[in-house]
């Protein structure tokens, strides 16, 4: 019997790893959003002074890790391990960032759930005593994602109302075995959920069942209810997916009142993103700039952060396959008294 596993899918970290530092870097559109003044660095243009968007995305990821390290007066060489991922083929942003950092590196792919996936893996490794300090990053870039997954950016097509806008941004987190900061107490690893949605312009609908599955399993595993959390926040379901999730939760007798979504928080409705934000960067920058800061200030005591990912490729989409989706959850707690 696994000692540190509770219920079906939840891991308990009794040594309580700590998120000690974090930083976010975003593009100009995100900078104009409601969280605009909370990011560590807002780029003036989506190229970040580089020649290509791919290079710009990689730089954002690198900058965010460097900023997070600098806040703790650490250097890349102090990291025992770097965990990172992004949306591009062969996760090139992460690979090139790891080349710069020159630390032991495990690349992750969980589509937009990558950050939650990274925090889960970091927690497991720290709990297991394999490392003291682990860096975790995730990034996405609207133009690189648009190029790879959809159509050329200059093509004059219309985005349907269900489509989400990929966030240009990256955030990095420093997770340590010992330290002061935000406590990482549990992780729930998700299963693939696929209810046959194949419309790549409607990822919210595709991902909502995965979020439901993970949230429900998490609460059952720990014998908790939604009232044990100040916030249950999903990664990038957007307006549409979040509304579906609320309906699904109600059908499963879970109150949806604590639910929110990073894809909804990252842009204001006037920014014309249709169904909200998406991408690895979406949940990452909202967590770093907003949610974890609320925990630090004691505005929230305990949140459930649920990264959601649509694990499709352009090829699977063209071949008409439905979209396999996943959600991973981590529990983050402020130090001090917990309700």
């Amino acid at each position: 019997m696994a000692q540190k596993k509770i219920g079906k899918q939840t891991f308990q970290f009794s040594s309580v790893p700590v998120v000690t530092s974090w930083a976010s870097v975003v593009g100009p559109k995100e900078g104009q959003g409601p969280l605009g003044d909370k990011y560590d660095l807002v780029l003036t243009d989506s190229l970040a002074g580089e020649k290509t968007w791919e290079k710009a995305e990689q730089k954002m990821m690198q900058y965010s890790m460097e900023l997070a390290l600098e806040k703790q007066e650490l250097l890349p060489k102090d990291l025992d391990l770097y965990l990172a991922g992004d949306l591009l083929n062969q996760i090139i942003s992460a690979n090139f960032t790891a080349r710069f950092l020159n630390t032991p590196f495990l690349g992750l792919y969980g589509a937009c759930s990558t950050l939650a996936q990274g925090l889960c893996v970091a927690g497991i490794l720290l709990e297991g005593g394999f490392a003291e300090k682990i860096g975790v990053s995730a990034s996405s870039h609207h133009d690189t994602a648009e190029r790879q997954f959809r159509t050329p950016t200059e093509l004059g097509d219309q985005r349907p109302m269900t489509a989400q806008w990929t966030v240009t941004g990256s955030a990095s987190f420093l997770v340590e075995r010992i330290g002061t900061g935000i406590m990482l107490t549990h992780a729930t690893i998700g299963k693939i959920n696929d209810l046959g949605v194949s419309n790549t312009q409607d990822l919210g609908s595709a991902m909502a069942p995965a979020a439901l599955d993970t949230i429900k399993t998490h609460l059952e595993d720990l014998g908790r209810s939604e009232d044990d959390y100040d916030l249950i926040v999903t990664g990038d379901l957007g307006f549409l997916g979040s509304n579906i999730l609320k309906e699904l939760l109600q059908q499963n007798d879970i109150s949806p009142k604590k639910i929110n979504d990073c894809g909804i928080m990252v842009y204001s409705p006037s920014q014309d993103t249709h169904a909200g934000g998406s991408g690895c960067g979406c949940s990452a920058v909202v967590l770093a700039a907003h949610l974890i800061e609320r925990l630090r200030k004691g505005l929230d005591q305990r949140i459930l952060f649920v990264g959601t990912g649509a694990l499709l490729s352009q090829i699977s989409a063209f071949q008409g396959e439905s979209i396999p989706c996943i959600a991973h959850a981590v529990v983050l707690e402020a130090r001090g008294e917990v309700k």
Partner: peptide
């Protein structure tokens, strides 16, 4: 899983903005 898929998609469809 077909019936489950159909049931879900009809729920999801209710929330699709026009």
């Amino acid at each position: 899983t077909k019936p489950q898929q159909i049931a879900y998609q009809s729920i999801a469809l209710k929330f699709v903005p026009p």
